[in-house]
Design a binder for these strands. Structure first.
Length: 485
DNA sequence: ATGTAC
């Protein structure tokens, strides 16, 4: 829309809003976008990311990724690091859906083997993986066991038969961030969460059957390292988060922060949606520990869904999951705040990095990566709309410029309401089936909201990340089946 | 995103 007058074009794909743009800004803003993408961004993005630059203790530019759009407090695609001693933690910088993230699973099946059974496969996945608002899962545990689950993360899944060690190794943070403390989580969050393990959710959450066509392999060597080396290989990509549990944790602490921010800590923010607390305060540390529970819940959620995927594939293809090569490629969050070491003003420091609708993308050599990917860079999973395709990228050393962060998806360009006005869910399902994408959905109106037209072009988004060196293309996937919340 | 709002 309307670009701020003072915005400066640093390169074809990097734009800067100077500190002078708005009173109170402590640092400049850097937006990663092509001319086309930045003019497509809603005006709110510039104001929102400039507000982030005004938060106390921010250690460098506030960043916005090319898929950025308007969100609660921070824009989606917003990235900001804070000094742990002088800075803040803000739920609006993480998102209500804490550890909303992506998981990518490979198979040794080809598109021909899968297409002939796609209806059966998608129908069974739809039946076995609860989707939609308010659904509960098949994992029956007590509230107290749930408290243990959110502290121990994906390892709980392996102990209880929902996965194998290899899955854990291929999950970011090995499926468990240290320091999760369930005593910092409210009873209502536990109540909402304890029956939601293994459920997909609603909105833009989905599970998709995809194909890696030979023409869409951009880096065969990296693709092979990530396990994509069969022509027209079928993969499964899923997008979901911490459900009502994470939502409640975010809501609880937003309220807490609003009540103490000004009165107790004398912090003012340009927008009350940026409610925050000093990271080192009791309230800040409590939220950090509770948020980590939601991060772990989400890793567990996606792990249990993987278990279900293995069961369904095994059932449909009458083969053992191991014979179908159902291995994880990676699992990565895009809504978190993490303490990480980065080079800030020339020296290595520990900072609290908020990523909201933005994906961590460590480069080759990072000790955070599993041994199998250590030399290749971190797999980055980018979900596109159900019509246009998705990407597997890899992190690069030059990602340091954005605290090793890249995009997370397409990013909306059209409001949900507008999408529903222009499209009918049932018709869309029919049209997509004619184009070779078989979809089951929990809600036809939710399906209409996710129409491809409502999203930015994923190829444009990925091109910016590659042109700026914050990640590189490895494989592009196209969908043939989808279950939607 | 969300038992889609106090």
């Amino acid at each position: 829309m309307k670009l701020p007058k003072s915005i400066k074009k640093l390169t074809d794909n990097i734009w800067e809003i100077p500190e002078s743009y708005k009173a109170g800004m402590n640092v400049p803003v850097r937006i990663y976008a092509s001319e086309k993408l930045i003019t497509e961004m809603d005006e709110g993005v510039f104001g929102q990311i400039s507000n982030v630059a005004a938060l106390p203790g921010i250690t460098g530019p506030a960043y916005c990724m090319p898929d950025g759009h308007w969100g609660y407090g921070f824009p989606i695609g917003g990235v900001a690091a804070f000094d742990p001693e002088t800075g803040v933690i803000s739920p609006g910088g993480i998102g209500f859906d804490i550890n909303c993230g992506m998981r990518l699973i490979r198979t040794i099946l080809t598109v021909d083997e899968v297409r002939s059974r796609i209806r059966d496969l998608v129908d069974k996945l739809f039946k076995r993986i609860p989707a939609g608002v308010g659904t509960t899962g098949f994992v029956v545990i007590s509230r107290d066991e749930f408290r243990e689950v959110v502290e121990s993360g994906a390892q709980w899944c392996v102990k209880n038969g929902y996965g194998v060690e290899e899955d854990i190794d291929l999950t970011e943070e090995k499926g468990c961030v240290a320091g999760a403390d369930a005593s910092k989580v409210s009873a209502s969050a536990i109540e909402r969460g304890y029956r939601q393990i293994g459920t997909l959710g609603s909105g833009n959450h989905y599970l998709e059957i995809q194909v890696a066509k030979p023409v869409n392999i951009y880096d065969p060597k990296l693709a092979k390292t990530f396990g994509i080396d069969i022509p027209n290989q079928v993969c499964i990509m899923l997008h979901c988060g911490s459900r009502g549990f994470g939502h409640q944790v975010a809501t609880d602490y937003l309220h807490t922060f609003l009540s103490v921010m000004g009165k107790k800590y004398d912090i003012t923010t340009p927008d009350r949606e940026l409610a925050c607390a000093p990271f080192r305060s009791q309230e800040g540390q409590d939220y950090f520990a509770a948020m980590k529970c939601a991060i772990n819940m989400s890793y567990v959620n996606r792990q249990v869904i993987l278990h279900r995927v293995r069961e369904v594939f095994s059932d449909v293809f009458h083969r053992d999951p191991a014979d179908l090569g159902l291995h994880m490629i990676y699992d990565i969050a895009h809504n978190t705040a993490m303490l990480e070491k980065h080079i800030i003003d020339g020296t290595e420091r520990e900072v609290l990095v908020h990523r909201k609708g933005a994906t961590r993308a460590f480069g080759p050599g990072s000790t955070s990566l599993p041994a199998v990917y250590r030399n290749s860079g971190q797999p980055v999973i980018i979900g596109g709309s159900m019509e246009t395709g998705s990407y597997l990228l890899a992190g690069l050393g030059s990602g340091e410029q954005t605290l090793f962060t890249t995009a997370h998806g397409s990013g909306r360009t059209m409001s949900r309401r507008q999408a529903k006005k222009l499209h009918n869910g049932k018709q869309l399902q029919h049209d997509l089936e004619e184009r070779g994408i078989y979809i089951r959905t929990a809600s036809y109106s939710a399906l209409a909201e996710e129409v491809g037209e409502a999203y930015k072009n994923i190829d444009d988004v990925v091109a910016v990340t590659e042109n700026t060196g914050i990640s590189k293309r490895v494989v592009r996937f196209v969908p043939i089946g989808n279950i939607k919340g």
